[in-house]
Design a protein around this nucleic acid. Sequence first.
RNA 1: GCUCGAGUGGUGGAAUUGGUAGACACGUUGGACUUAAAAUCCAAUGAGCAGUAAUGUUCGUGCGGGUUCAAGUCCCGCCUCGAGUACCA
Length: 937
Amino acid sequence: MGYPFHEIEHKWQAFWAKKQTFKAQELNDKPKYYVLDMFPYPSGAGLHVGHPLGYIASDIVTRYKRHKGFNVLHPQGYDSFGLPAEQYAIQTGQHPAITTKANIKRYREQLDRLGFSFDWSREVRTSDPAYYRWTQWIFSLLFDSWYDTDKNKARPINELIRIIEQAGTSDINALCDDDTPALSANAWKKLKPHEQQAYLLYYRLTYLAETEVNWCPALGTVLANDEVVQGVSERGGHPVERKKMKQWSMRISAYADRLLQGLNDIDWPEPLKEMQRNWIGKSIGASVRFQIENSTKEIEVFTTRPDTLFGVTFLTLAPEHDWVDELTTAAQKEAVSSYVRQSAQRSERDRMSEVSKITGVFTGAYAHHPITNEKVPIWIGDYVLAGYGTGAVMAVPCGDQRDFDFATHFNIPIKNIFKDVDISKAAHVAKENTVMAQSDFLDGLSYEEATIKVIEQLTQSGMGEGAVTYRLRDAVFSRQRYWGEPIPVYYVNDQPQLIDEAYLPLILPEVSKYLPTEDGAPPLGNATDWAWDTQQNRVVSNDLIDYKTVFPLEKNTMPGWAGSSWYFNRYMDPHNQEVFASKEALNYWKEVDLYLGGSEHATGHLLYARFWQYFLYDMGLVPVQNFAKKLINQGMILGESAFAYRLKDSQTFLSKGLCSGKEVVPVHVDVSLVSHQNELDVAAVKKWQPHFADATFELENGKFIVGREVEKMSKSKYNVVNPDAICYQYGADTLRMYEMFLGPVEQAKPWNTAGISGVYNFLNKYWRLFHQENTFSLNDTPASKEALKILHKTIEKVTQDIEQFSLNTSVSSFMIATNELTALKCTNREILEPLTVLLAPFAPHICEELWALMGHKESISTVPYPVADPQHLQEDTKEYPISFNGKLRFTLPLGTALSKDEIEVAVMQDDRTQTYLDGKTPIKVIVVPNKIVNIVI
RNA sequence: GCUCGAGUGGUGGAAUUGGUAGACACGUUGGACUUAAAAUCCAAUGAGCAGUAAUGUUCGUGCGGGUUCAAGUCCCGCCUCGAGUACCA
């Protein structure tokens, strides 16, 4: 029989809740520490054993830091806007707010059972108007800002207007739309107000523009690039098309370089930083302009290999390039327009799956080489993407494999510009150790030299210059969905106008249907009261729209990542009605010290949050540029799915051993019906789902054995393990320690309860250290030397482990200590009291109970953390290695006359290498303190 | 294709800057307690060889080389698995 964990856990969870033990103190003199988990999306399925992994780890650090005397902020909340709640609403007609609330309640119950020390008084929910008021407010700020390249920061749009009014746009260096027209001060003044508004959209950090977006017809909404994975939607896996639509976008591209550079200042996992670097995708190269024959126009291309300029034998434009129509000669008109039409119809996914298929068409037009003035044909090919660079490339078949393939396919000449390189079979892509040839003034130069020289030449002649391009695109910010933050904008003369911040939040209206309307308008088009009265500053009925004082409101809502891009700041001061967080709170808590979450957010949430934080910093609203100093990605806990094998076209299932040579279909079965030995409970399966009821099960050796496979935990795979069941059987403390014991937090691993008894046994053993014959008793006499050594060794090890986030090995340390103390029959208070404090972050319930039994009145979480005393840590340094009468290992060359026994060496502990004489022979002694000694003669 | 990780007993996994590989746990085997079982406790457990035994000894961290007195750890070349990304010019 084990220790009474049920009773203990209920008791202390109630105690913590009642006493508000974990409420973060406001702004006191203690050093602060902010531990944050990525807040969960409360789905209908509830928690599975994979979710708490990160929460357990962060809770251990949190409790540890509290013991260490830090004022710790450890909040939790819910990312409660999002697609699944809405899909559920569409299917059932239930308001998402209701299902979300129910899901949150369930999550909270499950979280509470695990004994987390969250400060729930600071809970935030992104779908709460008191919260999204500030999300809308940040949107307004972004709308009212532009990016000044000279100052390298965002500035208020009013300052831009003032500059334009005085001097026009000629002196402005801004990160704005590529095709922003230049304006003089006079021209600006002549614009009508709504034209001025339209013009400012070129500069605003959130702007409305006709852009190519990822349109997902099945979901009825557009998606950001990071929500599209391999041509299909991340959620649901529906096909995604490219479509031109008028959408809100966030000018994240303005921050591309800072987002890239900033990675050097934060302690985040290298793989995650690498993912962000790739996503930002900085390329350094040159812009080159090619004059079109018989035209004043120039085609601008971007290349990372300006050194290969003399190898250009044609240009290729993307089919969507703006000048395609204009360029095409009459003779080629038909071929070109049919090709353009064709490639527009090909979906993104087709284009990806048919990568190797070479297609293209000649426009009939030519351009002039910027240096040689030679005529180069202009082609169209869909291997060139409209969205990257300028949507046009200079093709160098000898140096680029795609250009090579294209040229070969269409019989375009290939010019070799590399000395002594064979390009008959493939392009020469490598740039190192190559010497230029047939390249006029570049002949004989290396790649680096040629690059510099050619850019110099182009700059001089005005035909090009060095250039940098990013892969990072502006983030589409509109969603044609219901369950999201309304965008606080109404339209006057089709131009967006902000709702004054005094009248925020703009509350999500009730609608009759959550689906988009028939005419394709977002669900908010179903709202009857969705117009803005500019006199009364409130939402009124659509019937009152007169375009004089009452105007239509924006019908799109914000994407899921809006609310999560700044929530870490709100936790610092969650109930503030005046500002999103007070200056005092922001200056005290500053940034997250430790952030835990999954790496799947690398190019979504984590990039957007960095972007918003930079912006808020530019506006002087937050004191630090980086919102999270250190980040750890916890690995996913995977499920071990179980399969029964159905004989094809039959209702017969075969035990695993009987399948070889037969055609079988694996079918998921519920893992809870399978034993550790992979034996399926056939009777239970027949009851479980009707289609198994009449099936036949062929056994082997009287058993039905299932196949196993590790997969992501998911309801549909019937491999979900619920933490409630584990808590019931073993208790929360065991679950907490077991999840840590399973392996490094960062590592993905399959859930397997096989080893849980080891951790459970440990807690029982620990309990028994304090209990003889079920009675609590401790010994107040001084502890033995051995016991003290065990204690201090454990303090040292566990402290180091937590600091280095190696929580699995600290669990081992506790087990070793407990085993050793049991063997010593140690029951001394002097040992067990500090040891219990040490264990409290890992197993808080049992430690609170023992702490109380020891006669303490206060919660153990307020007790100072024990410190290792070096006096008790001294290893057996007296005999080893200072004197060598113990074991020694020698490495002696063959034929050495000395026998091992004859050698006596004295060694200084500090010296690593010394030379000694044993009479005649000089010997080299390499010493590593406390380690092995090798002697070479 | 490119980028980044990772390969250690039957299993999960330990191993500071290169310094006694396999901590700790599961599992397995044997034993104690018990009428019996559960629970608990004790012992053994990388592989091989020699020995009644204590013990000795060889091989062992995906494969092949290298550096070093010393390599799981560093270097070079492969193989396998995982993650991310992909006509990015």
